[in-house]
Structures are given as structure tokens and as C-alpha cells.
Design a protein around this nucleic acid. Structure first.
Ligand code: ZN
Ligand code: ZN
Ligand code: ZN
Ligand code: ZN
Lengths: 150, 150
DNA sequence: GGAGGAAATGCGATGTTATAACATGGCCGC
DNA sequence: GCGGCCATGTTATAACATCGCATTTCCTCC
């Protein structure tokens, strides 16, 4: 987990370096989208992202943001929450194991959680049916602490 | 798990009875939609369902199928796979615990799996962060045996 | 049997999310 | 300069889902 003390620029620079390592390039658009994702810790919808990015790029269109998102996801810098049509920045470094995404149906917030115990029992269970885990995203609907209180 | 030997009519009749128990009614439209879901063991998309149901009800429109799906999901007779915009009939009776949905990204097939070990470690993990499990659906992307072989 | 009300359906329009298809522009090795 | 490659711009459209309101159906109570 990246400490909160790291400021946005540092996070982005690190992302840029990790892309470069893999021969990919974090271009200006992609960097901007990643920055916006980081400013939305609970996740953001593609068209909200589009609206935001038009503040700096008036001509942005849906493909602009979907292409950037696809790239970021491919690079492991962001995740897609299918259930909610929501996108979130990855808050971990390189994933050694899949993350759990706790999606709160009340506030639409997303929490990313790494948990070795759950993941290992998951592997065992899947292996028994001949399946092989494919994506780093396991989506779970769960009421978050704030909404549980209310 | 409902044995395969049960034919469609029996499954539907049982569903109808269980709705009635709860004071809900499995109307003709809902029953037809449920039947179509059962004929698509790997899941089906809403608009494919719409096309199918127009064979018997020429005037069906998107709300027709979405309303039926909402009802079936509410009654625990079907599940929605958010990641794929896919709907599947529930292949279990009343759920005592959440199911795992293994979604194969190659063939778009969905397998429903109940696994106590995974679910209990999930509960423990969520409780530690103050979350409370909310839905009976945990979506996991996993290559299915057939696609793994190919 | 008839009035009233709740639930379900019909219907058209609209909103939301995502991709297709094709053109353009910059960069690099040749 | 030329050709290949990647990123981007641009327009249109596909795919998925919901709203709002009129009408019908079904049940209940009188
Ligand atoms: Zn992550
Ligand atoms: Zn919440
Ligand atoms: Zn089920
Ligand atoms: Zn498959």
C-alpha cells in the first residue's frame, strides 16, 4: 500500500516509471486520467471522468477516456468494478495476488482489500472445479462502516 | 442444488410455489423469463432475452424484461452478473450463504458455486474492516475448464 | 355483483455506458 | 522522404437500463 504521505506527483511519477519499465508510456492524457482516479478514492464513473477531463481538454470524447482507462487497467494501475460501472485507481503496488473490492451499494464507495486467507481458500475452491483465477478483481457487495452506522 | 433430472416444468412450479409462500406471484411473463434463463445455463443478456421472449410476446419491450428480471432477482430465483451484464437462473434453492460466480472471460460462461470455506473466510475478513456482506453474489473472473484446455 | 385499490403490464421516450470505424498526427528507423 | 507504429481526434452507433404515464388485471371488501 502506498502511504498517504506520498503526494500525487510522486504517485504519478512512480506509475510512469513502472510503465516505462514495461515498454509502455504514460502519456499526458493517461496521466491526467490516473490523477483524476486518485482524487476519487471511492471510484468514479467513466462519464464523470469525461466531464472532469474536459476541464483541461475541451475536445475529449468517450473513446478518449475509455482508451486511457483500458491502458491503465492493462498496466495494473486501475481497476474496473463491473457491478457499478465504476473505475478506481489501484492503491497497491504490483499485485502479487487478487484484491477484494468491497462495493457499498448505499454510497457506491469502493474499498480495495488484499487478504491472503480469502484468496488462498479461493484458489483451492476454484482448483477443485477445474477453474483458474484470471483477474485481479473480486467484486463483493458489502455495506461500508459509515453506511452501516446510518 | 436442483438435480438435472427435474424437468423445466417442475422447476418452474417449484419457483411459483416459493413465490406464493412469500405473497408474490410468478406471473406468465415472469415465468417465461425464468424458463428462458434456465435454458441458458451459462447466462444470457437482457436484450437477447428480449429477442427470445418476443417469439411468444411480440410486444415485449426493454422494461418488460427488466421488470421480470428485477422480480426474479428479488425473489432469489435469478442472479445478475454485473461484470458481464449477464443474468443467470439460480441453480440452488434458497441461499443460506452467498454464492461464488465464476465468470469465464473467454466464453462468457457463468458457473455458480457454493463454498463454505471461502465464504467464512470472507466474512472474517470483512468483519475486520467493519464491512457487512450485502449481496448473495461474489463475482470472480476465472477461466473455465473447457477454455483452459483450448 | 360492483366499487376501490394495489400490482402488473403496455408503450414511448429517454438516459447511461461502451465501442466501432475511420481519419489524423507525431515519432522513429531506414 | 517513406513506411510502420502508436496515440489521438472525431463522428456515429451499439448495447444496456430506466422513467413516466396510461391501461389493464386481479383481488378484496362491501
Ligand atoms: Zn489494485
Ligand atoms: Zn457506504
Ligand atoms: Zn443462486
Ligand atoms: Zn470459458
Amino acid at each position: 500500500m502506498i502511504p498517504d504521505s506520498c503526494d500525487e506527483t510522486a504517485v504519478l511519477d512512480r506509475a510512469e516509471a513502472s510503465c516505462r519499465q514495461r515498454g509502455a508510456s504514460l502519456t499526458a492524457i493517461r496521466r491526467e486520467v490516473l490523477a483524476l482516479l486518485h482524487r476519487a478514492p471511492k471510484g468514479i464513473k467513466a462519464y464523470d471522468l469525461l466531464e472532469q477531463i474536459r476541464h483541461t481538454r475541451g475536445n475529449a470524447s468517450p473513446p478518449t477516456v475509455y482508451r486511457a482507462l483500458d491502458f491503465l487497467i492493462e498496466q495494473g494501475l486501475a481497476h474496473r468494478i463491473g457491478r457499478m460501472n465504476l473505475f478506481v485507481a489501484c492503491r497497491h503496488g504490483k499485485h502479487s495476488a487478487p484484491s477484494l473490492f468491497l462495493v457499498c451499494p448505499k454510497c457506491n464507495g469502493v474499498t480495495e482489500l488484499e487478504d491472503a486467507a480469502v484468496v488462498s481458500s479461493l484458489y483451492a475452491s476454484l482448483a477443485a472445479t477445474g477453474h483458474r483465477l484470471d483477474s485481479p478483481e473480486v467484486e463483493i457487495s458489502a455495506i461500508c462502516p459509515q453506511c452501516a452506522a446510518a
